[in-house]
């Protein structure tokens, strides 16, 4: 009753459509460059690990992954820790300018990164954070903090207010109530919010590339180096691309049961 005729076929076709380009990337990453350019083969006939080996042994390559993970994790921690109290405030209290503040936050989530690229460059150069993971982590807060507040507010509102009142009657102080009672209650919400912060920080490139030059360069920017005088190094590019998919795939696996409600921003 729930579903439509031929649903297996539709789902199957759609999943193939999603997986085919990814398969092609994986396929290419295991081929030698000679095979990529000379013949069209559906699977690697002379499989090789040379591209992966190069990425894992060349420091200028693997440091890119470390840099990326560094600012993504920093950003997730900052976003969640500042968003939690705010989400509680928006969910429980009415205060001067609350609605305007919420809208203002939301509007920052929607602001195009291209607008901020240049001013961010000036700002972070001026305070000496340019080319550090902190610059990128702080810059990504502009869209992740509002998103985290928005998701967490939905989850905090799902906690009955009686629980707060009982805790305060039992003599809990506010910080103790917050850490001991509220945080465990919305643990799945925090997981979902962290997942989204991780996701949007991991996929963003424009700001990450603008705010770094050498020491904190993200992997996505390093990938553009595969264009050299001898032409494109397609195999290396494909291998680097495959390695950027893996962290995301791992994170999805951990939150797969919450994905659906998380994408509805805790509001279904």
């Amino acid at each position: 009753m729930h579903s439509i005729p031929g649903r297996r076929l539709i789902m199957g076709l759609f999943l193939i459509f999603l997986l085919l380009p990814i398969y092609w990337l994986v396929n290419m990453s295991f081929k030698t460059n000679a095979e990529i350019v000379s013949t069209m083969t559906l699977w690697p006939h002379t499989p090789t690990l040379q591209h992966y080996k190069r990425i894992f042994t060349d420091e200028s390559w693997y440091s890119g992954y470390i840099n990326s993970l560094e600012y993504v994790v920093l950003n997730t921690i900052i976003s969640i820790s500042v968003a939690l109290p705010a989400a509680y405030a928006f969910s429980r209290y009415r205060f001067l300018g609350d609605k305007h503040l919420f809208f203002w936050l939301l509007s920052n989530r929607m602001a195009p990164a291209a607008v901020y690229a240049l001013p961010f460059f000036n700002l972070y150069s001026a305070i000496g954070l340019f080319d550090t993971p902190w610059a990128v982590a702080l810059a990504h807060c502009i869209f992740n903090v509002p998103l985290a507040v928005w998701i967490l507010e939905g989850f905090v509102s799902g906690v009955p207010r009686e629980i707060d009142e009982t805790a305060f009657l039992d003599g809990y102080s506010f910080p103790r109530f917050f850490i001991k009672i509220l945080v465990p209650l919305i643990a799945s919400g925090i997981g979902v919010a962290a997942f989204f912060c991780f996701m949007f920080s991991w996929v963003e490139l424009l700001l990450a590339r603008t705010l770094t030059s050498v020491h904190a360069k993200p992997i996505a920017a390093i990938m553009t180096r595969t264009v050299s005088a001898a032409g494109m190094d397609w195999g290396l590019l494909a291998a680097a691309g495959v390695l950027t998919i893996i962290p995301g795939a791992l994170v999805i696996w951990f939150v797969r049961n919450y994905i659906a409600s998380g994408f509805a921003l805790g509001r279904v």
């Binding site: 990814i22 996505a220 995301g248 994905i259």
Partner: peptide, 14 residues
Amino acid sequence: LVILALPLLIPWNV
């Protein structure tokens, strides 16, 4: 669900 979410977590330039 995992396969559906996969394209969303790939960096945009990738």
